[in-house]
Design a binder for these strands. Structure first.
Lengths: 340, 340
DNA sequence: CTGAAAGCGCTAACAT
DNA sequence: ATGTTAGCGCTTTCAG
């Protein structure tokens, strides 16, 4: 309940001086600064950011909208952002955004509209035109991760390129019978990711002169999802691919587990490559492309703070920062077994 | 930028009336209420919670401290809380609490001290005496999940009982050679969970007249952690247990994967039981005890709001709400194979 | 039932 | 370098 007036009185100065001394803005003699700081500490004074926000318009808080918490990639992004924000004294308020629904609308119309945040970070959400407008109307910096947003600075890896890389890796090992297990395309709205990775796959296959009919299977982005599809794809020994490119490591691991259950040896009889750099990759000897989620989170925050510190700088219009995906480990891939 | 004064002017009433109409507190004729609401909507007015907080002391926001985000149990708790809080119009600000460190101290001394939250939820953190005091000094409701906190209402499952149940399940199937793979006891500070589950295990074994020397192995609470320990425990065929009680499902699944790699058949040659109700359980046919993390999150919020609505109610002193763990699936457990 | 006025805790001019 | 004043946007007495 201690207010700055108490500190000022105790230090024998005016409120304004106390404010200057504690915030470090404006001229204060070293001597009085010390007095004020001591007084503040002695009564355990902590400034009320609410009162300050009211006058400065800054809240030292950012809002984050994200479609999943319980998914490795998203949780990593979250941790990366949290660390970076805390370091700069910012709070992170989290909204777990559901698919189109009244609850979702309420987040944009009510929670994000309350001027509570200095900025908003949108992680892996494809926002509707309306939603983008609502966010822009806030007049605050907005940065995206993963999904591209019209007129917004976005951090991402190049999904098309990553998918092409993964596919080319299998092709270069000599595989010609390759399948892509990717995201359900109905969820596409929320993940351009799905179609981008599919596009990269198709492009690489076509460049190699291979057809892609019937080479795509849809799966949930989870281990059980990959397992189920793996059972389906690998079940029939007569039309079984020798290589699989999975759109994420959870799917890839699920497929490897399925393969083991079916007695298919990886990588001797089946090569699998995923995307993410998931910690399970090592244990399952999974070849994968690192996606640096923590780093993406950190970069988003850095970009945000830059815009905040330098509002004169033109709003980055659809600028895109791309991280290069990095290929790691290769124990789950090898050339196809020569036909007997 | 629209303020309540604009709404008032447009509706032809005083600020006070507009405030009453919009907040629903105090007498307003239905007629003027309608006028005010219309005016508000017509200019897209959204109240500034900051300004309101300044006078009411309420922020409509709660702080959450949690040691991990990227762990199934914790992420589920988070989602459960988020849904329940949003429903009531509350924001959730997240702090990913590291182990003892200057960063950790800063969270208590600075971030949580700023009167920004109506309440604090502590998930799975064993707080130090100092930290508990700091939190109590805020004079705001505080509820815990998982870890017990002195003088604080806590939601949890009975870890000792759950561990006993799991162990008794194996015993009742006829196993006598049982190992417990639990948490590293050095991390104990943060999880009474570890020692509680060990205690339940030991108690059940002793009741059955079995010794427990050398029956405990420590692991990280992760799939790779369980895998590594599984390899170690199951590596030597001559002294291999017939039953394993894992302290969480991640560990349990890791052990099952290890067993498969070693050609050990589950459950014919090895029974495994875990705790959590993790979604991977089904795919690996894992016997497990449900821990209802989402429900725990929801209950914590309900309890919080109750205290908030009814501050006269005595601060719940160390009250404990326990959820009953529920046993599900049993495909990974069976009686021990009769000795040849 | 409604209005006028005070003030929550702080910072930003403007003086001095 | 420091003090004085005004006011951020809202709710809440207190009168009417």
């Amino acid at each position: 309940m201690r207010a700055i007036a108490d500190v000022a009185r105790l230090a024998g100065v005016a409120k304004a001086t106390a404010s200057r001394a504690l915030s470090g803005r404006g001229y204060v003699s070293e001597e009085t600064r010390q007095k004020v700081v001591d007084a503040a500490r002695s009564i355990g004074y902590v400034a009320s950011p609410n009162a300050a926000s009211l006058v400065t318009g800054r809240t030292k808080s950012v809002g984050v909208i994200i479609p999943f918490i319980n998914r490795w990639f998203f949780a990593e992004v979250l941790e990366g952002m949290e660390v970076a924000l805390l370091e700069q004294g910012y709070d992170m308020t989290l909204y777990n955004l559901p698919a189109a629904s009244p609850e979702r609308d309420r987040i944009f119309e009510y929670f994000l509209a309350r001027k509570r945040f200095d900025a908003v970070i949108s992680v892996g959400v494809a926002l509707s035109e309306t939603e983008v407008d609502q966010l822009h109307r806030l007049g605050r910096p907005l940065v995206g991760i993963g999904g591209p947003i019209r007129g917004v600075h976005t951090i991402a890896i190049d999904d098309v390129e990553a998918a092409r890389l993964a596919t080319e890796h299998l092709l270069s090992l000599g595989h010609t019978d390759i399948v892509h297990v990717g995201g359900v395309l109905v969820d596409e709205m929320d993940f351009a990711v799905h179609s981008n990775r599919l596009r990269g796959f198709t492009s690489a296959m076509m460049s190699a002169g291979l057809a892609t009919d019937g080479c795509f299977y849809a799966s949930e982005f989870t281990l059980p999802g990959g397992h189920a599809v793996g059972m389906e794809v690998l079940g029939d020994p007569r039309r079984r691919p020798t290589g699989i490119f999975a759109a994420c490591d959870e799917i890839a691991v699920g497929i490897i587990v399925a393969a083991r259950e079916l007695g298919i040896s990886v990588p001797a009889d089946l090569s699998v490559i995923g995307i993410d750099g998931h910690p399970y990759a090592e244990m399952f000897r999974l070849t994968t492309l690192e996606q640096h989620p923590r780093e993406q989170g950190r970069l988003a925050v850095v970009s945000l703070l830059a815009e905040l510190d330098n509002p004169t700088e033109h709003r980055a219009d659809g600028e895109l920062t791309e991280l290069p995906p990095r290929l790691v480990m290769r124990a789950s891939t090898s050339g196809p077994r020569p036909k007997a």
